[in-house]
C-alpha cells in the first residue's frame, strides 16, 4: 500500500491538473479518459438523461452528485452499456463506446458497481472474487472439463484474490456465502471484486448507501487507494461530507442535464446547485448523513427507477 506521502502527492497532482479547468458545465479537462457528447435517454415522455458534453479527468476522483431523479444512475447505465441511449456518443481512452455490450466495456477497463449491491449471494466470498478475474482459461466449456488446463491459473487467481481480500479486511469471511455478509461488507466485496477485473476506471454507484458508519472510513480509504494506484474513479454519492472529503472534482446533474462542475468546495456554493436541490426536494437536507442504517442492512429497494426484475 502506498504510504501517506505518495497519497498526498497524488491528490496534489490531481488537484493541480484540475486547477486551471474552467468551472462551467461540460468544461474541457487537460487529460480526459472519458468524453461524452449529446447522450440522451428518454423514458416515455420523461427525459431522464440529456448530457450535452462531459469529460472525466484521468487519475482523479470525480463525484457525480444531484438530487433524486437527476439521472445519475441512468447516466451510469448508459456509459457502461447496461442501457441504450436514444442518441449520443462517448469514448473511453479514445475508443468509441456507444453500442458496445456491457461485458466488453468492462473488458476495456471501465468497471462499475451497483447502487443495490449485487453480491452473488449463493457463491462464497472467494468465489465472488475469483469470478472477477479476466482471461480465465477454465471459463471455456471444453477446457472446464479438463481441470489440468486451468488448475495453475486458478491458483494464481486465488492468491491474487486473497491479497485483495486481506486488504479489504474480508479474509476472515473467505469461505462464507456472500449473502451472509452485512450491507457494508457487501459493498467492500463488490469493490474488491471490481478490482479483480484490473480496471483503469472504476465507476461506483453510491458506494456509501446503506453502509454502517463504522465501515465508512475504511471504504473512503479504499477509494482513495484506487487513485494512488493510478486508477480513475467516478462515483455517484449523496453524502456531501464524503464528496468533500475524497473528490478532486464534482459534477452536478439536475433533471438529466449537467448543471455545474468544479472543485468540491466551490461547487457547493454554486447557486444553480443549491436551487436544484432545494427546488426539487424542499424537505430534504442537502446532507443525507442521518440516513445511517443501524443494522447495516441496505435500505428498502425503493430506487428512483422503481423497476421490477
Amino acid at each position: 500500500m502506498p504510504d501517506a506521502d505518495t497519497a498526498v502527492a497524488r491528490r496534489a497532482i490531481a488537484t493541480a491538473a484540475l486547477a486551471s479547468v474552467e468551472q462551467v458545465p461540460g468544461a474541457a479537462k487537460p487529460d480526459p479518459i472519458l468524453i461524452a457528447d449529446g447522450v440522451r435517454r428518454q423514458f416515455g415522455g420523461l427525459v431522464a438523461v440529456d448530457v450535452a458534453h462531459v469529460e472525466i479527468q484521468r487519475g482523479a476522483i470525480t463525484a457525480l452528485i444531484g438530487p433524486n431523479g437527476a439521472g445519475k444512475t441512468t447516466f451510469f447505465n448508459l456509459l457502461t452499456g447496461f442501457d441504450a441511449p436514444d442518441d449520443g456518443q462517448w469514448t473511453f481512452n479514445g475508443k468509441e463506446l456507444a453500442g458496445v455490450a456491457p461485458h466488453k466495456v468492462a473488458r476495456l477497463g471501465m468497471v462499475r458497481t451497483f447502487q443495490l449491491t449485487k453480491a452473488l449471494f449463493r457463491l462464497t466470498v472467494i468465489e465472488n472474487m475469483k469470478l472477477g478475474a479476466t482471461g480465465q482459461k477454465g471459463e471455456t466449456f471444453w477446457r472446464a472439463l479438463l481441470p489440468g488446463t486451468w488448475k495453475k491459473q486458478e491458483a494464481e487467481i486465488t492468491a491474487r484474490s486473497e491479497v485483495l481480500l486481506a486488504r479489504f479486511k474480508l479474509d476472515s469471511k473467505r469461505d462464507d456465502f456472500a449473502g451472509s455478509l452485512s450491507g457494508g461488507q457487501r459493498k467492500l466485496l463488490e469493490m474488491a471484486r471490481a478490482l479483480m477485473v484490473g480496471p483503469e476506471m472504476v465507476m461506483l454507484d453510491e458506494p456509501m448507501a446503506g453502509v454502517n458508519p463504522a465501515l465508512t472510513q475504511s471504504l473512503l480509504g479504499h477509494i482513495k487507494d484506487l487513485r494512488e494506484q493510478g486508477m480513475t474513479v467516478l462515483f455517484v454519492e449523496h453524502d456531501m461530507d464524503m464528496v468533500r472529503d475524497i473528490s478532486d472534482w464534482v459534477i452536478v446533474m439536475g433533471q438529466g442535464r449537467i448543471i455545474a462542475e468544479g472543485p468540491p468546495g466551490d461547487v457547493m456554493r454554486n447557486q444553480a446547485v443549491i436551487d436544484a436541490y432545494l427546488g426539487t426536494h424542499h424537505d430534504q437536507s442537502l446532507i443525507e448523513t442521518e440516513e445511517s442504517f443501524i443494522d447495516g442492512e441496505p435500505p428498502a429497494p425503493a430506487t428512483e427507477e422503481g423497476e421490477r426484475s
Binding site: P102, V111, R112, F141
Partner: peptide
C-alpha cells in the same frame, strides 16, 4: 470449474456478472 462459477454467478445476478 471457472466455467461453472460464471454459470452460478449468472443464476445469482446476471448484471453483476456482465459488469
Amino acid at each position: 470449474s471457472p466455467w461453472g462459477r460464471v454459470i452460478k454467478g449468472i443464476r445469482e445476478d446476471e448484471d453483476a456478472v456482465r459488469s
